[in-house]
Computed example of a mutant assay.
Amino acid sequence: MRKIILFGLMAAAAMPGIAAAQSHGELRHDRRELRQEQRELRDAQRHGDRRDIREQRRDVREARQEYREDWRDYRRTHRDVYRGGNWRAPFRYSSWSVGAQLRPSYYSSRYYISDPSRYRLSRPGANLRWVRHYNDVLLVNVRTGRVVQVNRGFFW
């Protein structure tokens, strides 16, 4: 009997970690669910009564909240996975702003984000690269060294 209770306690302790491990598939499912709830709300607004509309609004709100929570969990778990790399530069932190010009050592290929879609960053245009600078992400024109966009605290 003690073994069963002990095993149950160990399983209960492991559950939050398992629940926090989100995947792209779960996020896609949540997005689909949110879109479905929004469609049902539009249908209720067209053809339903007040009670139907109120219920559908609540469903949309709950679906949106669940998606936000899952996205937050996904970012937290995957940020920890990718944090292991050496992103610390051989220079001190500087807070950059749009229009600033960087020296080439600040945006060398070592600091490029090779797969921006993994972090939900937009696809950079010609001669533009997403560059990690400590916990910030900069969109830099690699020909001129000019900062085009800044996302501060992106990795925290």
Score class of each variant (00 low, 15 high):
residue 90 P to H: 02
residue 145 G to R: 05
residue 24 H to C: 00
residue 107 Y to E: 05
residue 109 S to I: 00
residue 116 P to T: 12
residue 52 D to I: 00
residue 3 K to F: 10
residue 111 Y to E: 04
residue 19 A to H: 09
residue 102 L to F: 04
residue 71 W to I: 02
residue 77 T to Q: 14
residue 34 L to W: 11
residue 104 P to K: 13
residue 46 R to G: 04
residue 88 R to A: 12
residue 99 G to N: 10
residue 133 H to K: 11
residue 27 L to W: 02
residue 3 K to Y: 07
residue 117 S to N: 12
residue 119 Y to D: 07
residue 130 W to A: 10
residue 4 I to D: 11
residue 25 G to D: 11
residue 14 A to L: 03
residue 145 G to A: 05
residue 27 L to Y: 03
residue 125 G to F: 13
residue 32 R to T: 15
residue 40 E to N: 12
residue 79 R to S: 07
residue 90 P to K: 05
residue 1 M to F: 08
residue 49 D to L: 05
residue 43 D to W: 06
residue 89 A to R: 09
residue 12 A to P: 02
residue 137 V to R: 02
residue 70 D to K: 14
residue 102 L to W: 06
residue 105 S to L: 03
residue 97 S to A: 06
residue 71 W to Q: 03
residue 146 R to Y: 06
residue 42 R to Q: 01
residue 103 R to T: 08
residue 65 Q to F: 03
residue 12 A to W: 00
residue 63 A to P: 10
residue 25 G to V: 08
residue 16 P to L: 03
residue 25 G to S: 13
residue 151 N to R: 10
residue 8 G to E: 09
residue 22 Q to N: 00
residue 38 Q to Y: 06
residue 138 L to A: 04
residue 139 L to R: 11
residue 10 M to C: 13
residue 42 R to N: 01
residue 123 R to E: 09
residue 87 W to H: 07
residue 137 V to Y: 03
residue 153 G to C: 02
residue 30 D to G: 06
residue 86 N to Q: 14
residue 41 L to I: 03
residue 5 I to Y: 06
residue 89 A to T: 09
residue 7 F to S: 08
residue 147 V to Y: 00
residue 106 Y to Q: 15
residue 2 R to K: 00
residue 4 I to T: 14
residue 52 D to E: 14
residue 13 A to V: 04
residue 85 G to R: 15
residue 119 Y to I: 03
residue 125 G to H: 15
residue 5 I to F: 14
residue 59 D to L: 03
residue 54 R to W: 13
residue 113 I to G: 10
residue 61 R to H: 10
residue 11 A to D: 01
residue 139 L to K: 08
residue 63 A to Y: 04
residue 128 L to I: 10
residue 106 Y to E: 12
residue 146 R to L: 01
residue 20 A to F: 07
residue 150 V to N: 01
residue 93 Y to V: 05
residue 95 S to D: 01
residue 109 S to Q: 05
residue 100 A to S: 15
residue 12 A to I: 00
residue 25 G to C: 03
residue 107 Y to H: 08
residue 126 A to P: 12
residue 151 N to H: 13
residue 14 A to E: 00
residue 136 D to I: 14
residue 129 R to A: 12
residue 80 D to P: 06
residue 153 G to Q: 07
residue 2 R to V: 08
residue 87 W to A: 08
residue 147 V to Q: 05
residue 34 L to Q: 10
residue 10 M to W: 11
residue 114 S to N: 15
residue 121 L to I: 07
residue 38 Q to L: 13
residue 84 G to Q: 06
residue 83 R to E: 14
residue 14 A to Q: 00
residue 59 D to M: 05
residue 84 G to H: 03
residue 128 L to N: 14
residue 32 R to Q: 15
residue 95 S to R: 06
residue 148 V to W: 07
residue 90 P to G: 05
residue 37 E to Y: 01
residue 101 Q to I: 14
residue 103 R to P: 06
residue 100 A to M: 05
residue 18 I to V: 11
residue 122 S to F: 08
residue 56 Q to A: 10
residue 45 Q to S: 13
residue 86 N to E: 12
residue 43 D to R: 01
residue 95 S to N: 02
residue 84 G to N: 11
residue 112 Y to I: 04
residue 151 N to P: 06
residue 149 Q to R: 15
residue 47 H to C: 08
residue 48 G to V: 02
residue 51 R to P: 00
residue 64 R to H: 06
residue 114 S to Q: 15
